[in-house]
Design a protein around this nucleic acid. Structure first.
Lengths: 230, 230
DNA sequence: CAGCATTCTATACACGCGTTCAGCGCTGGC
DNA sequence: GCCAGCGCTGAACGCGTGTATAGAATGCTG
């Protein structure tokens, strides 16, 4: 069953992979490290082939990126199945970001989030789905307060977590790309206290703003603002 | 009246539109709209000049971007003094993001946050400073619960707000760059409810996680870990 | 073995980039 | 008058890019 050969991090020469897969992996690494502006020739050199062969296998740089995207998505799906769901609960992101084994995947995902694109959207959507599930479990177990709009809250939490992490790394990029996990760990260290405070104690001492908002949307003066395209 | 000998003095830039200023403004617009990959020729065309003149005035594309950065910083400072501090309180970001007049500045700042660089860091630092101030006022007024590490909380809030907004726009970029304000408004609409809920009611029903963390790291007032503020 | 398809390299092409440079028109000072 | 300086243009340079193509190596199939 588990005949998968997980792509090793750098070091061991993956001679057993097909050339196409080697190129793809090299592209994932470079794209993750340096962004999608990396030239085909650099990727080709990493994979030990010529630039033309990259085109021959993928047709276009854009298609190469698409191949990387779908491959990363599969890897994430696989990683989730493997050992995440059971143990990490809501801290998927933290584990995913700091576990060494996922470093290349995580770097690539970060770059995608930074640049936008289908993979980024898909990744966020999946995380929102998962968050909805985790939060529902928490609510059912009585450890998480229910929300008036569970999905909106889940999305808000995911966007905030991912966004703050992404921003943190963008503002203070690692010299050595292998330090990415360390950087994320530092970020989590920095935000854990305020996040926990906020999760358990809130920020506001009065319900005034929330109640005002609720009564405001309760009687929505919808004429004032048009809502287009839902 | 002709222009006198062009003063190269920094700091006090003339308000009339010299060609140099026109180029700079065109660059700000294009950089904000399309990112810093925009070619010099496009910017030059926008400003109605040749590409060589851009180099003649700024020496280098990188220096042009630096000129844009400092100009934007000045504009922000100016805007803050003008009419923000008095009225908007903690909702500076929301006002700044949705006010039409600041659209180009905001777009440029977003691009900077996306790409990193000194302007982005400076902007975030300033926002953290402001947030510390606002939160302190709120705590003094009794409407905001105090934190065990006010600066860490302020930074966390700023990173989350900016990061979620940036991510939201990156995932769903506007076709028409002038719709950026509308997009941000939609984002704020989407997060207002969960944010208010969280600010007033928290997320966790039990203090367990917070207390465990506190007993684990001990007392975390700022003295324990000195952060290089530079 | 021959024939063929596939993998792969080397070279080349067309293009866009940032930047340089010679030179233009103009203005002000001597 | 002439010269110097400035703002400015248009062409060009060198380089790196993604991609196309011809052909060599390789291996499979008859």
């Amino acid at each position: 069953m588990l005949t998968m050969r997980s792509t090793r991090s750098r070091g061991a020469e993956p001679e057993d992979l097909t050339t196409r897969a080697r190129i793809r992996d090299a592209a994932v690494l470079r794209f993750g490290r340096e962004g999608f502006g990396t030239s085909l020739r650099v990727i080709a050199a990493d994979a030990g082939v010529s630039a033309g062969l990259v085109i021959h296998h993928f047709g276009t740089k854009e298609k190469l990126r698409q191949a990387c995207d779908t491959h990363i998505l599969e890897e994430i799906k696989h990683a989730k199945y493997e050992n995440l769901v059971e143990s990490t609960g809501g801290r998927f992101l933290e584990y995913f970001a700091t576990a060494e084994q996922f470093a290349p995947i995580f770097a690539y995902v970060l770059r995608s989030l930074q640049h936008g694109g289908p993979l980024a959207r898909s990744f966020v959507d999946h995380m929102v789905d998962d968050a909805v599930e985790y939060m529902a479990d928490g609510v059912a177990a009585g450890v998480i307060v229910p929300s008036r709009d569970e999905r909106a809250r889940a999305r808000y939490l995911v966007l905030s977590s991912l966004g703050s992490g992404l921003l943190s790394i963008t503002l203070d990029p690692p010299e050595d790309p292998s330090d990415l996990a360390a950087l994320m760990r530092r970020h989590f260290d920095a935000i854990t206290l305020p996040a926990l405070e906020m999760y358990t104690e809130g920020v506001l001492t009065t319900r005034r703003m929330l109640d005002e908002y609720l009564s405001y949307v309760g009687d929505p003066p919808a004429a004032r603002e048009e809502r287009t395209a839902g």
